[in-house]
């Protein structure tokens, strides 16, 4: 069941209506060589991973490649995965790393940000039609602002300010100290506010006019 609503946990989207309760059994089967079990895990968690990646890097064309990287990394980590963390958390951690690598390599490229693919970002619960159009413009604007941040700041900010993680959760996902995450997120916020202030009065950020 897809959980909807403003107050619902945002990262508990479970595709295909399957409960996560038998994840450990599927993981054990996958570790023993049952590819069908691994495929089932993929189908179960792929949507959530894609959503997380999208929030972190935006709706870029490489999104699905990143999802694949996450599951390949998970596959490689299977022998050592002992289930200390829930699978969704474990995948989230891998997704954060994949997103960081992607943002960093994108930053090294001369042309900066990857072009967004023209797929819509689906917002839940679905607002009215006019609202959806406005939402799309807002998201494009925010993503353009986020593209100005360094990958580390961007990820810390999104985890804390967008996904609502506690500093401890974000630090565990990133693999950094809580203080470090806090500083990155604060700096990111300050930068974003400064850019918003700089664009005040202008019709909008470039590209979203």
């Amino acid at each position: 069941m897809r959980i909807r609503g403003r107050l619902a946990p945002r990262l508990t989207v479970i595709p295909h209506g399957e409960p996560e309760t038998d994840d450990p059994a599927l993981i054990a089967a996958a570790r023993a060589g049952d590819g069908g079990a691994f495929a089932r895990l993929f189908r179960r968690h792929a949507d959530a991973v894609r959503t997380r990646i999208t929030r972190l890097v935006g709706p870029v064309a490489e999104r699905d490649d990143l999802v694949q990287k996450v599951f390949i990394a998970f596959y490689r980590a299977l022998p050592g995965y002992r289930g200390e963390a829930r699978l969704s958390t474990f995948l989230h951690r891998i997704a954060v790393n994949a997103a960081y690598d992607h943002l960093r390599s994108r930053g090294r490229q001369a042309d900066g940000a990857s072009p967004l693919d023209d797929e819509a970002l689906v917002e839940h619960p679905s607002p009215a039609l006019e609202e959806q159009v406005a939402a799309r413009a807002d998201l494009a604007r925010l993503l353009a602002l986020l593209d100005e941040l360094s990958p580390k700041k961007r990820i810390a900010f999104i985890l804390v300010a967008v996904e609502g993680c506690s500093l401890a959760e974000a630090a565990a996902l990133i693999g950094a100290a809580e203080d470090t995450v806090k500083q990155r997120a604060l700096h990111a916020r300050r930068d974003l506010l400064a850019r918003l202030a700089a664009t005040r009065g202008a019709p909008s950020v470039e590209g979203t006019s």
Binding site: D47, L121, G164
Partner: peptide
């Protein structure tokens, strides 16, 4: 804006 991004879902 952050609220917008937080409500985004991108399922396959």
């Amino acid at each position: 804006l952050c609220g917008r991004l937080g409500r985004v879902e991108a399922p396959f």
